[in-house]
Amino acid sequence: MSKHHASGRRRAGAPVPIARPRDAQRLERRRRATRVRSDLSLTGMSQKVAIAAAASGLVLTIALPTTAASIPAGETAAATGEAVAAAETTVAPRDITVPDAALVDFSRTALQSTFDADAKLTEIMTAAGSAAVPAAARGSLSAPLDDLIMTSPFGYRVSPITGMGGELHSGQDFSSSCGTEVLSAAAGTVTFAGWHPYGGGNRVVIDHGNGLESTYNHLSLSSVKEGQKVDRGEAVAQSGSTGASTGCHLHFEVMVDGQTVDPMGWL
């Protein structure tokens, strides 16, 4: 081996490599690769930091860019109001606590109605007339005395005057002391006030319309006259024992189309 070859010098006949010109596109690709590796490096570092923070109980807040559109200044109030209204509609109902001293009143307004007994009576008589039955007529007439003490009822009986049976007692007797006020059973017009020749003694007859009449018999005196208008419950006479009577009482009759009926079906 020659000295020239041992010293590392090239042989005189070895070709010398020719340097290639730099490629601009290759350089750009290398720079991009360098940036990607840098980004990956930062991402990996952030993940490591997040894992370490979670392990140590820390909370990291990362601000990220948003693509949401911003609200113009002039529409901010309207948008805020809509958001508040939407929030209010979704709020769950809550119990209301009232102090012990507070007055809470849940009373309802009272419903009031006025019953017109005379209008009811007119309705019954207009619809049924002489065919009116106690089930429909009961309560349509008022009591002719403040206290009703029934004695002899309506129907056939033995006459207390003659002692003979088979007599039709045409009304309802009520025991009362002489001079007790007798009251009109309903509003109407007095059609008779005087002496009854067939045993009724002093008698008052009141026409209530539509074929309905009431009579009051054996009176000690009457305080009304024929043609006079009277109201329901108005005093028209005083009880007595005139006519075919054995003592102070009121003989009360109800007539429909001129025929006597049981008064207790109307009281």
Rank of each mutant, 00 (worst) to 15 (best):
A110M: 08
G139E: 05
T151D: 10
L103T: 15
R138L: 14
D116L: 08
P153Y: 06
S142E: 07
I149V: 15
A101F: 04
M125K: 04
A135S: 15
T151F: 09
T122F: 07
G139P: 01
A92R: 13
L148I: 09
V133C: 03
T97G: 06
A102N: 06
F115A: 14
T97Y: 11
A143D: 08
A136V: 15
P134D: 00
V98G: 00
P153V: 02
L121H: 04
I149H: 12
V133E: 08
I96A: 15
F106C: 10
L111G: 09
Q112M: 08
S113Y: 09
A131H: 10
V98N: 02
F154D: 03
K120Y: 13
V133M: 08
L148W: 00
V133T: 15
L111R: 13
S130L: 09
P134T: 10
D146A: 08
L103S: 13
A128W: 07
R138Q: 13
P93Y: 05
D105Q: 10
A119N: 00
Q112C: 01
F106L: 15
A101T: 15
I96L: 15
A128T: 06
I124D: 03
D116N: 15
F115P: 04
K120T: 07
Y156V: 04
F115D: 10
T97K: 11
R94Y: 10
R138K: 15
T126S: 06
F115M: 09
I96C: 11
S130P: 07
V133I: 02
S107P: 06
P93L: 11
T126H: 03
L148S: 02
T114C: 04
L145F: 02
A92P: 11
F106N: 14
G129W: 01
V98W: 05
A135K: 14
L121G: 01
S152F: 02
T109G: 02
T126D: 05
D146G: 11
M150I: 12
S107G: 14
A127Y: 02
A110S: 13
V133N: 09
P93E: 11
M125N: 00
A102V: 12
A128D: 13
T151I: 09
P93I: 09
D147V: 11
R108L: 12
A119T: 03
T122H: 08
G155A: 10
T151A: 13
T151E: 10
A101V: 11
D105I: 11
D118L: 04
I149F: 11
S140T: 15
D147C: 05
S113E: 12
G129Y: 05
D95Y: 02
A132N: 03
R108C: 06
D146F: 03
I149W: 08
I124M: 08
A137T: 03
D146N: 10
A131L: 14
D116S: 13
T122C: 01
D116W: 06
L145A: 06
P144M: 13
A132I: 05
T97D: 11
L145C: 05
F115Q: 12
A119K: 00
D147T: 13
S142A: 15
D95N: 04
E123Y: 07
A131P: 07
K120Q: 11
A143C: 05
A117P: 03
A110I: 08
S152T: 14
L121N: 00
L103P: 04
P99Q: 10
S140R: 12
A92H: 10
A92L: 14
L141H: 02
V98E: 01
S152Y: 00
K120M: 07
A137R: 00
D147L: 07
L121E: 04
